[in-house]
């Protein structure tokens, strides 16, 4: 890969990328994409959330899985950081705790590709206790 050192280099690299991305974006709306949120508050970052987010972004792209990886705040599961929330198209979101790169790899291979659940799920129904 050529080195990107200036904005001009970036522009050049972009030309080669554009065609690849065009096909992707026309093919699907964001609803049909896998959506992943990485908890990135003090607790998450201190436990290694940045490395996990980097891993997810790189690996999903490499493995050709169309996904959106975003950051979110603390979900209140500081004891289980790094935590990530994975929402497969048409399914309820699932939160995984204690995610390192190995676990993230498992989640991609088992849950995202095959819908098979992986250890470390944090049970939640996204409702506050008051509403019950």
């Amino acid at each position: 890969m050529t080195k990107v050192k200036s904005l001009a280099d970036l522009k050049k690299m972009k030309e080669t990328l554009q065609t690849k991305i065009d096909i992707r974006e026309k093919g699907d709306a964001s609803e049909s994409l896998v959506q992943i949120k990485v908890a990135m508050a003090t607790c998450g970052i201190a436990s290694g959330a940045k490395a996990v987010m980097e891993f997810l972004m790189e690996e999903l792209d490499k493995r050709g899985i169309q996904a959106v990886v975003t950051q979110t705040g603390c979900m209140g599961y500081c004891y289980a950081e790094p935590t990530i929330e994975v929402k497969l198209p048409g399914k309820e979101p699932v939160i995984f705790g204690y995610v390192d790169n190995k676990k993230a790899d498992d989640i991609i291979e088992k849950y995202i590709k095959n819908g098979e659940l992986v250890d470390g799920i944090i049970p939640t129904n996204f409702e506050s206790i008051d509403n019950k």
């Binding site: 970036l10 972009k14 991305i21 790189e58 999903l60």
Partner: peptide, 8 residues
């Protein structure tokens, strides 16, 4: 935010 932009 497209995935291939981050590494660049």
């Amino acid at each position: 935010n497209s995935p291939s932009v981050y590494p660049l």
